[in-house]
């Protein structure tokens, strides 16, 4: 079953940016509850770039969110010290977002994740930058899994992000990604999870929700199972549930949308 990562608690959004500045916990908590009720398995927590003291802001956001919900938190920052600040105060289950695939980065993040019994998102990005083709993405994913074995890291707690680019950036890459997902899923048993920033695909386009639904369905069929996404988009969530029932992940009934949602929320 899909494990949606709710994207909304992110300082890139204006209301969150203001809430961080004014330390208004109610905004964070409101999104934490709404996204949990909508079926988010994880809540992404990202301070954005505007906060003056990002470590302090991360601690405050994590504490605000976990005061409201027991949902797993996805501690999201490119800066190691900001991630560490979040880990220090987090009591909920944790997904770290993210490590790059360079060996020296994985050698830091994998032990750190193990220390907190956390899962870990690993980007297929290394010192050469964002890969532009199938093979490079797949070979970097293999290197990540090799590192996981070296660190005795549970593969089922690895979330590989092979980088989904916007449709208006390099259109031909969208269908390449389904091949990437399939190949990564075949690499180990149990396989790693696969995540991408789904909304990234449609940014700057005119039909965001429709494009998100379309890429989600195509991607889930190929193995994407933990997208960072707009879980408050009900049509998008219904699409995810429909894709799961089509793939025989749970038993069909006429009320399958309700049943699927109850599986996602555990209610």
């Amino acid at each position: 079953m899909i494990e949606p990562i709710g994207e909304r608690i992110n300082g890139m959004f204006k209301d969150i940016r203001i809430a961080i500045k004014e330390r208004d916990a109610s905004v964070i908590q409101d999104y934490a509850r709404k996204q949990t009720e909508a079926g988010a398995k994880f809540l992404d927590i990202n301070v954005g770039t505007a906060a003056e003291d990002q470590c302090a802001a991360m601690k405050w956001m994590v504490e605000a969110a976990q005061d409201a919900v027991k949902t797993a938190l996805c501690i999201d920052s490119q800066k190691l010290e900001v991630v560490k600040a979040g880990l220090e105060v987090c009591k909920n289950e944790i997904l770290i977002n993210s490590s790059k695939a360079d060996p020296e980065a994985l050698d830091v993040y994998m032990p750190l994740a193990k220390q907190y019994n956390a899962s870990l998102i690993c980007l297929t990005i290394n010192k050469d930058g964002v890969p532009q083709d199938i093979d490079t993405r797949v070979s970097i994913a293999a290197e990540i899994l090799g590192k996981a074995l070296e660190h005795d890291f549970d593969i089922s707690k690895i979330y590989i992000d092979p980088i989904l680019l916007p449709i208006n950036c390099d259109q031909k890459q969208a269908t390449m990604m389904t091949e990437v997902y399939q190949q990564i899923k075949l690499m180990s048993d149990p396989p790693p999870h696969i995540t991408v920033g789904l909304s990234n695909f449609s940014q700057g386009t005119s039909e965001k929700s429709l494009l998100n639904r379309t890429i989600l369905t195509m991607s889930m069929a190929a193995g994407l199972d933990a997208p960072v996404m707009d879980v408050l988009d009900e049509e998008l969530m219904n699409t995810a549930i429909s894709a799961e029932v089509v793939m025989n992940s749970f038993i069909y009934s006429d009320s399958f949308l309700k049943a699927g949602k109850s599986m996602l929320t555990g209610n």
Partner: peptide, 9 residues
């Protein structure tokens, strides 16, 4: 099985 689940719901 589908109706079975539906009745439960």
């Amino acid at each position: 099985i589908n109706i079975g689940k539906q009745v439960n719901i």
